[in-house]
Nucleic acid binder design. Sequence first.
DNA 1: TTGATATTAGAGTATTTACTCTAAGTTTGT
DNA 2: ACAAACTTAGAGTAAATACTCTAATATCAA
Lengths: 206, 206
Amino acid sequence: MKRTESTRQRILDSALQLFNASGTASVSTNHVAAEAGLSVGNLYYHYKSKQQIIRALFDQNEAEVLSALAPPSDRPLNIDDLELMMKANFQILWKYRFLYRELVALLIEDPELATSFRDLRHRGFSNFERLLQFFAASGVLRPIEDPEELSRLTHLCWLISEFYISYVESGLGLLQTVEGEGWQEKGLALLRHVIEPYLPPDPESP
Amino acid sequence: MKRTESTRQRILDSALQLFNASGTASVSTNHVAAEAGLSVGNLYYHYKSKQQIIRALFDQNEAEVLSALAPPSDRPLNIDDLELMMKANFQILWKYRFLYRELVALLIEDPELATSFRDLRHRGFSNFERLLQFFAASGVLRPIEDPEELSRLTHLCWLISEFYISYVESGLGLLQTVEGEGWQEKGLALLRHVIEPYLPPDPESP
DNA sequence: TTGATATTAGAGTATTTACTCTAAGTTTGT
DNA sequence: ACAAACTTAGAGTAAATACTCTAATATCAA
């Protein structure tokens, strides 16, 4: 059972690496098997189609996102937690960047995946909206009365989080190779920029 | 020469339609030829590869974007122009949505296209940044002293413009079929939301 | 008209791709 | 020990894909 787990994971790791490097379209199952150093038959024993591999990577991504964004149960959230969550989120986005980069295309090609993904994300969105609402109600942010405004702010944060990596990869975010850390800091700066107008007025300030 | 133009265009139109509907990966040149109602040989007479078709669609998109975003030469820009530009831009983004949806993947698959696209967009970005700077300097927006802040605001607007369509298509932007007009209005609302903190203080207000 | 060039159709091909099958090892439970 | 279940390799295949070639027709310039 250990070997199984390890082979399955090796397939996913190789697929992830190749997908990130070259995109799902130009990476075949044969390539993945070769990269993982095992036979095609073996690969198909563990995953019965290329779709299944992609779905498995979606699942793996989902699990990592959920664990990274799980709120601490022992104390109330503060604004630094939010920043840490965003940071962890960026790491995961980068690890699975092919997935976000080709998101819509992948969902079009696999309608079943699409519905489950959309369902999951819809819940995530609601959670995040409630989180912001909570911040606004508890004084971490200034109050937001208009529900439309709250919704917009949430959409904005989500949009940035989900597509900032693609924005960077598409070339405007940063001009050099992207392996450095600057892109992360810049992404966080964008999110802060959006949140900033909602910080409570500082009583120390004149 | 007229016939040529029309066949060439028919190929592009069919390709665009199929790409938008199913993604570039699952649309073959044979499909495009069939959809356009002409032979494969004919298609390859006009475009010598699938890449060339994609590049032609990039070019066509570029031309439309440039013409939609050309500033009026006879009068100074005002804030309503900005809104009209955004609106026109959304229309074009929708028309060529496969292109933005698969942007990074397409650039990875065609490095030559990548460099020219990035070059073009870099210029576009600079122009837009100058436009915002001009607004800030001329009182349409409040002054923005920090160049970093101006840069961030520009990046933010650009990111939203470029990926909002994908955001909608990915399912969170709107839940129903996307053919309606609501998504456009919501996208504009996001952009306004980002710009709003930079509107000059209203002297009429208390 | 005539000859050159542009346009079209459609059969054909080399390669690739996703996937199957069979048979041989390897674990595991009892 | 031994059989059942799990895991692996690798040859093989049907279909699809991007693209070529040839030859027929249309257009145009002189």
